[in-house]
Design a protein around this nucleic acid. Sequence first.
DNA 1: CTCAAACTTGAACTTGGCTTTAAGTCAAGA
DNA 2: TCTTGACTTAAAGCCAAGTTCAAGTTTGAG
Lengths: 153, 153
Amino acid sequence: MDYSIGEVSKMTGLSPSTLRFYDKEGLLPGLGRQGGKRVFDDDHVRSLRVIECLKSSGLEIRDIRKFMELTTKGSASYAQRKTLMEKQRAKTLEQIDEMQQTLAVLEYKCWYYDEALSRGNEDFATDAPANLPARGRELYKRAFPRDGEEGAR
Amino acid sequence: MDYSIGEVSKMTGLSPSTLRFYDKEGLLPGLGRQGGKRVFDDDHVRSLRVIECLKSSGLEIRDIRKFMELTTKGSASYAQRKTLMEKQRAKTLEQIDEMQQTLAVLEYKCWYYDEALSRGNEDFATDAPANLPARGRELYKRAFPRDGEEGAR
DNA sequence: CTCAAACTTGAACTTGGCTTTAAGTCAAGA
DNA sequence: TCTTGACTTAAAGCCAAGTTCAAGTTTGAG
């Protein structure tokens, strides 16, 4: 099945100009034309899904291009492609860890402002986590695990 | 305790120019000077930790500035600050979900290239997930949950 | 007093990833 | 035949978040 750039745009959520940009950057090797117009097929749409995934794992366009070039080399590049996927998997796991840490801080802050709101002041947090209520101390420990004493506003 | 820009740079991992940039952008309200030089204290260092957190939750500099302005308004802004933290918490949860989805695709791809490498070809994945080995079908389902048939290279 | 290290400023520059613009082509339908 | 909508190109523009630059100031040691 073949698609126009507009159809692929709707299928992937990427704008036509982004698709042209990706093509120009070499992310869609072997993309053909008919009457000057780009003709996409299901393989291209699948490639775009992988591109999106590599992008969210932190790969830059030029590195995605290198990967797409590898896919044109068939079985000769399996090992390199596998290595790249493993590297991105590891990076993604690290990123998830960092987001969990960010989340812990935000949960503490949500509790903190909830508490401040119901008390009318932030005095409960002077010298935090020392004189914090149990719930707050718990959240604080998760948010700032490597932190002995001191206040946190 | 007071610190120079260089000390704070080492404490936070942010470059001196980034700290000057943050100051210029209003992210450190009330930052003082002595002899023309910026003087940071522990509160500023704590603010920088929160700034980092808001940044990784997806807030832009201008919105972080708005938040820091709120913190200068004391108890009058508790409700707004709480609302903002809750919004960022929700955003962060969504981001973690997306990263898990990305991870699932990468895990499938790791398996895929491992398999391709040991077989010497990708024929096992023609019409995936149909004729995939059990392990592969499992990973495929997690990677592409809303996907009935068709191959995936 | 002199020197080096660390700081100051405003302005220009960089990077990545698109998006916009301008001018033109192509195919289908009235 | 004319119009309309979707497409084409190259080049320029945009944005966020810093970074770099050039020129000057402050501070403490020797």
